[in-house]
C-alpha cells in the first residue's frame, strides 16, 4: 500500500514537471503521431485494400501496430527512462550509491525516479489506433473483448518491462556510455509485423531469447482469432500468453539483483 501511495505521489510530481514544458509536450504529441504515420504509410503503400498476407490485411496489421504502441507506452512510462540512463548515470557515474541507502527497493526506486509520463501519449495513441483498426477489421468490442484487450496490454507491457530490465541490468557487467535503446528500437520494428512473414530462425528468436513476439503479435493473434477475424488456428493458449511475461519479469528482476550484488560503487 505504501509503495502504491509512493508511486502515485511520484507520478503526480512527474506530471507537474512535464507540464512546465508545454511546447515539449505538444511537439511530443506531433512526433508520436508522425511516428505512427510512417508505419501506416509504409503498410498502406505496399498492402492495398483487399489484399492480405495469410489473413493479415491492412487493418489487422494496424491493429497490431496499435497494440504494440499501447504495450510499449505502458512499459515506457515505467522503465524506459531508466533503460536510457541506467548505464551512464547510475553505474558509470555511481548515482546508484544514493539509492542503496534509501529504504525502498533499488529497482522500485529507479522506477519512481524515472517515470516517463510523456509516454502516456504513446499509450493513448496505441489504444486509439487499435480501437479504430479493430472496428475496421470487424472486431466487436464486447465487454469481454475489452477486458481481454486490457489484459493483453498489461501482459505485453510486462514483456517489454522484462526486456528493458534485462538489457539495462547488463550494464552491471558491460558498462556503456550510451544506452542500448537504438539497437532495441531497431529490433522492436520487427514486432510491428505478423511473425509469420519471418524465417523460422527469426521467428524462434522473437519467441524465445528476445520474446518481442509476445508484446503484440501473439496477443493480437489471440484477440483476432477469438473474434473469428483470423482463422489460422495457430494462436497460443491464453495461459502461455500470461506465463511468459511473468517468468520473464521474475528472471530479469533476479538478474538485476545479481548485478546489484556485483556493484561496488562508482566505477565498478
Amino acid at each position: 500500500m505504501t509503495e502504491l501511495k509512493a508511486f502515485f505521489r511520484c507520478l503526480a510530481a512527474h506530471v507537474k514537471m512535464e507540464m512546465m514544458y508545454r511546447t515539449h509536450l505538444v511537439v511530443g504529441l506531433v512526433s508520436q503521431l508522425t511516428f505512427s504515420l510512417l508505419s501506416i504509410v509504409f503498410v498502406g503503400v505496399f498492402l492495398p485494400p483487399g489484399s492480405n498476407i495469410q489473413g493479415w490485411g491492412f487493418w489487422e496489421i494496424l491493429f497490431l501496430l496499435g497494440l504494440g504502441d499501447a504495450t510499449f507506452g505502458l512499459s515506457a512510462i515505467l522503465v524506459f527512462r531508466t533503460f536510457l540512463v541506467f548505464d551512464s548515470a547510475y553505474v558509470l557515474q555511481g548515482e546508484l550509491d544514493t539509492l542503496l541507502v534509501q529504504p525502498v527497493h533499488p529497482l522500485f526506486n529507479l522506477i519512481l525516479r524515472n517515470l516517463q509520463v510523456m509516454e502516456f501519449i504513446t499509450l493513448l495513441k496505441g489504444l486509439a489506433l487499435a480501437a479504430i483498426a479493430g472496428v475496421q477489421a470487424g472486431l466487436s468490442w464486447t465487454p469481454a473483448h475489452i477486458l481481454l484487450f486490457a489484459g493483453m496490454i498489461v501482459l505485453g507491457g510486462a514483456v517489454y518491462c522484462g526486456i528493458f530490465i534485462l538489457l539495462f541490468s547488463t550494464g552491471f557487467w558491460l558498462p556503456r556510455r550510451s544506452s542500448v535503446a537504438a539497437p532495441l528500437l531497431s529490433l522492436n520494428q520487427l514486432s510491428q509485423y505478423p511473425l509469420l512473414i519471418y524465417p523460422e530462425w527469426l521467428k524462434l528468436l522473437l519467441s524465445s531469447l528476445l520474446p518481442l513476439g509476445f508484446v503484440a503479435y501473439y496477443p493480437g493473434q489471440y484477440l483476432l482469432e477469438s473474434g473469428s477475424l483470423l482463422q489460422t488456428g495457430q494462436a497460443l493458449p491464453l495461459w502461455l500468453l500470461a506465463l511468459v511475461p511473468v517468468l520473464l519479469l521474475l528472471a530479469t528482476v533476479r538478474l538485476f539483483a545479481a548485478g546489484l550484488r556485483r556493484y561496488a560503487g562508482a566505477g565498478s
Binding site: 505496399f46 489484399s51 539497437p183 532495441l184 531497431s186 529490433l187 509485423y193 509469420l196 524465417p199 527469426l202
Partner: peptide
Amino acid sequence: FTYPVAFLGYYFFLQAI
C-alpha cells in the same frame, strides 16, 4: 550487430507482399 535488423522488417514484409 543490431542496426541491419531495422532493415530486416522491411525486407521480410516486402518479400511476403
